[in-house]
Structures are given as C-alpha cells and as structure tokens.
Amino acid sequence: MAVFTSVSLDDVQAWIAQFPLGDAVALKGIASGIENSNFFLTTELDGRRTEYVLTIFENLGFEQLPFYLQLMRHLAMRGVLVPEPVPTRAGELCVPLHGKPAAIVSKLEGSSQMAPGPVHCAAVGAMLAKMHLAGQDFPLHQPNLRGIAWWHEATPAVLPHLTEQETHLLRSEIHYQEAFHGSDLHKRLPQGPVHADLFRNNVMFDGARLTGFFDFYFAGCDTWLFDVAVTVNDWCVDLDTGVLDEARVRAMLDAYHAVRPFTADEQAGWQCSLRAAALRFWLSRLYDLHRPREAEILTPHDPTHFERILRERVAHPAPRLFA
C-alpha cells in the first residue's frame, strides 16, 4: 500500500453517494506497501460509524479487477477470513475515482503480527489451505502476473544496476527456474487461485486468533505450492539472515497438511518452489528500487533481504513438507 493519488475527504463525500454506506466522515492515507493508493475510510450511517479500506488501483485496469474483487467475495462466502468488497447500489464492485479504478472493502479486526511464533504460523497455514480449497470452484482465471513471464520482462531492466555477483545469481536462478517450470513435475503440481503475497503485514491477528488475510491484488492462478513457499519465506525466517526457523516451518506446514494434504509431487518440488518464491520478491524489489514511481507516501523495500533468502535456499535445503 501507498499513496500515489491524492484524495480529499471532500472528493470522497461526493463519490461515496453511489454506495449504501452513508456519509464519509474521515479519510486517512495508509503508508505501507508500494502498489496502490490506500486509505482508511470512516463512514456514518444512521448514527453509526464504520471503518473501511478504500483502494485506488494505480497499475490494474477495470478489465483485470473483477478477478481480484470477485475472488475475495467468493472466498468470504465460503468462510475464508478475507475483506469483502462493498458493491455500489448498482451492484458494481469497482468504479472510477479521479479517473482510476477504486473499490471499498470491509476492514478486518486486529493488527499484523510482525514477530510470529509457531502458533501464528499454524493459524496461517491452516487458513491458507482452507483458502486454496475454497478457490477450487472459482470460475475466473488469471495467471500470476508476477510469475515467470514477468521475471523475463523485468530481468533486462535490473541487470544494468547489479554487481557481477548479483548478475550471476539472477541469471543462474532464472535458468534453474526455466527448467523447473518447464518440467512435467511442475505441470503435475496442484494449482488454483493463490494469494501470492501473504506476508506478515497482510494477515491480521487478535492475540493468537487469526482474523483475516487481505491485500489480494497480486493474486492469480499458480501452483498452491508456490503460495506456501511465499508464505514460509516470510513468516518462518530470521529477518536478519533469511535462515528458516524449523519450529515455525513445521507448525505452518503441519497445519496446512492437516487441512489439505500435500502430494508426493509437491514434496519433490518444494525446494524449487522456495527458490522461485525468493527470486520473485528479490526481482520485484530490485525493479521497484531501480524503476520507481512517484508517490506522496512510499516506502521502498530492501531487495537484499530476498537476495539473502535466495542464497540461503540455494545453499541449504528446507525442512520437508511432510514425513
């Protein structure tokens, strides 16, 4: 999240009339993240105030957004804890604001758990498995827009900014992932809608109780194993070294496996998927650092964090998915 597009409370007060939410009484920009403009929006209807999240989409167009917004509604209707988009009186989930697509979704309770223990990782693993199963019958399809096709597009843009060692790592890992993604093993991996960005700051907790997943705007269809790898690479690592904490890894994988058992093919592709997940975020952070966009509030992420994680995954195998 970030703020690229300026919006005033006066702007929103006129715009929100198309929603059955009452009057807009407060608006506050959200500083975290780097993709869209996000705001906490407070409305008042019949004397009751309710807080929502307003998102203005900076990169996604009207033709792409139905996948994300309808996926969230689909999951919410099946008991997965996600924000639910609020339709307009005409039933639209996304309408223009300052000429850009915008949507309102419900605000989750709780706060992000930035120092997770095994209990938090187990809760995330179980809910992620539930999310994957709930998405099996989702009728829309969109590829992971930050998958291997994007890696090929982004690599030439960042290579001029890299050291010799970084260049070697990036080129060699791209070749490794090309072989993996083209293999029969990869084709056999279970697939469906994935969150693809389930970091600590995209999950809410109230104590040890998980209250929801949010920020689905990198979602797409990919292997479920890639989604698990993205999640493990953030929730289960030492942030200074990228080394996996086996207790947290085991808690997350065991909880996931209890809801949606991993397959033998997933066991075989696990190490490759962890490397793919690390490469995806190293490359995107390099791209965002060296090809920045202007924003009123923008906090770029350090790409070296995922470079460390990638090197660690190459050098040391992670715990197995299951015994």
Rank of each mutant, 00 (worst) to 15 (best):
E178T: 12
A123P: 02
A154I: 00
H141A: 14
A154F: 07
L128Q: 11
P292S: 02
D302Y: 10
S111G: 01
R188N: 12
C221K: 14
F306R: 09
A76R: 04
F205T: 02
N233I: 15
S273F: 03
D245T: 00
G242R: 06
L9I: 04
P319I: 06
L169M: 10
M1N: 04
Q13F: 10
V3A: 06
P156N: 07
A251Q: 01
S112N: 15
V3M: 05
R248D: 15
A295K: 03
S183R: 07
E266H: 00
T167A: 15
A219M: 13
I297T: 08
D227S: 04
P96D: 04
L60Q: 12
C94L: 12
S8M: 02
E173Y: 01
P101C: 10
T50F: 06
A277H: 07
L41Q: 09
E63V: 04
E35A: 02
T155G: 02
L41T: 03
A179Y: 12
R308W: 11
W235H: 06
L289D: 02
F216M: 03
M72Y: 01
L145Y: 00
N38L: 08
G99L: 10
A115D: 14
E51W: 02
T223Y: 01
D254E: 15
S32W: 13
Y256L: 06
D288A: 10
M131E: 03
R308S: 09
V158E: 09
E312K: 12
G29H: 13
N144C: 03
I309G: 11
R293K: 15
V53A: 08
D137E: 13
V158W: 08
A208N: 14
R49W: 00
R313E: 05
L274A: 09
Q13W: 05
A26Y: 09
G99D: 02
L274V: 04
R320A: 13
Q64C: 08
A134M: 08
L244R: 13
R49S: 06
T231R: 03
K187A: 13
V158P: 00
A179V: 14
W270V: 08
P193S: 12
D222P: 00
P292E: 06
G135C: 08
I56D: 03
F19W: 12
V194K: 06
P83Q: 09
L244A: 03
W282P: 07
G192D: 01
R78C: 01
L279K: 02
F218H: 00
P96Y: 06
S8K: 04
W150N: 00
D184P: 11
